[in-house]
């Protein structure tokens, strides 16, 4: 575990990828801001904004205004001068660098048919700093470990869903009480374990990692090749993923996944939850408190969710083994 303690803080790591102008600018931030920094938003011709966990700040001075050249330089540094090695990620609008930090890209996207073929002239970068919070999933783990049949973690963006499932993977895979369950992480965007140079960058215990693979294909591959007890993946939602989740469930694998939503009301309005809930893979739906990191707001069992008969949604009150219908 010494290796993880020696690892550089997320902020220090991200600073290494900045050009000299932004390196100087960001190094001058106060310690408090550095510690709570979540995002650095760099826009061409506009002052840089930093988003901390409690507030957002516009950086003062003309130096904080990024030029297109600055954005290009930072982008090249982030790519390690090798744009081609991030080709597939760039086409999806982001890149994930060493350390699991994800960078959102805005610019002029060039289409060939209905597919993105290139990105011209980047106009803004959103650098999201990944941090590790050991034991942040303690409450969730305690709630679900005994009668664990799959859990869906629901929360607003930037509330720590990925950090929580990373910690959950560590806890489950190292749990001797649960007989060291075989845990497999499907890390499509290299954010959960962030494998670089053949090493995981975060402490994920004894979990196996499938990196860079689409979640639906990764779930099936893990089921076939790794015989896992638990599969963990982030931001699930498409119909293919729901199908894969159902197939994994049929093979006796438990799933822990996350999904974006601001609360139960918002969750129930999302069309992509229908196939996921119908799959019957998620015994517990855990809603996170967006304001307090790692805190549980509400937990629903599937039966409770069916019973809720919420607003204009109608559920069949028949238990989790039956399908639900959302009108």
């Amino acid at each position: 575990m010494a290796e993880f303690n020696e690892k550089k803080d997320g902020f220090d790591r991200v600073i290494e990828f900045m050009n000299s102008k932004f390196k100087k600018l960001l190094k001058n931030l106060s310690k408090e801001k550095k510690d709570f920094l979540q995002e650095i938003r760099i826009r061409a011709g506009m002052p840089t904004v930093i988003v901390c966990s409690n507030n957002s700040f516009i950086l003062d001075g003309s130096e904080s205004v990024a030029t297109p050249v600055d954005i290009k330089e930072i982008f090249n540094l982030l790519c390690g001068y090798s744009v081609y090695s991030f080709e597939n990620q760039i086409k999806k609008g982001f890149i994930t660098i060493d350390g699991g930090h994800r960078i959102g890209l805005c610019g002029e996207y060039v289409f060939s048919g209905d597919k993105i073929s290139a990105v011209n002239e980047l106009t803004s970068l959103n650098i999201r700093i990944a941090r590790e919070f050991p034991n942040c999933s303690k409450d969730i783990f305690e709630k679900i470990k005994n009668d664990f049949l799959g859990a869906l973690i629901v929360g607003p963006p930037c509330c720590g869903k990925t950090t929580i499932i990373r910690d959950l993977s560590r806890r489950f895979s190292l749990s001797e009480k649960l007989k060291l369950p075989k845990t497999c992480i499907i890390d499509e965007r290299l954010e959960i374990a962030s494998c670089h140079g053949g090493k995981v960058q975060f402490n994920i215990g004894l979990s196996d990692v499938l990196s860079g693979i689409p979640k639906s294909a990764g779930i099936m591959m893990a089921v076939r090749c790794m015989s896992p007890n638990i599969i963990i993946c982030d931001e699930i939602g498409t119909s293919e993923e729901a199908m894969a989740v159902k197939s994994a469930l049929n093979c006796g694998v438990k799933i822990i996944a996350t999904i974006h939503a601001f609360g139960l009301d918002d969750f129930l309005k999302k069309p992509q939850i229908v196939p996921l809930v119908n799959s019957g893979a998620f015994e517990k739906i855990i809603f996170l408190d967006g304001e307090n990191f790692g805190k549980i707001k509400e937990i629903y069992s599937m039966e409770e969710l069916y019973d809720k008969n919420y607003r204009n949604y109608t559920f069949n009150n028949v238990g989790c083994s039956e399908r639900i219908h959302i009108l």
């Binding site: 090249n76 790519c79 001068y81 090798s82 744009v83 081609y84 080709e87 290139a118």
Partner: peptide, 10 residues
């Protein structure tokens, strides 16, 4: 030109 574009370009 090295490293500045996608795989086929390189």
């Amino acid at each position: 030109t090295l490293g500045s574009c996608d795989v086929s370009g390189q």
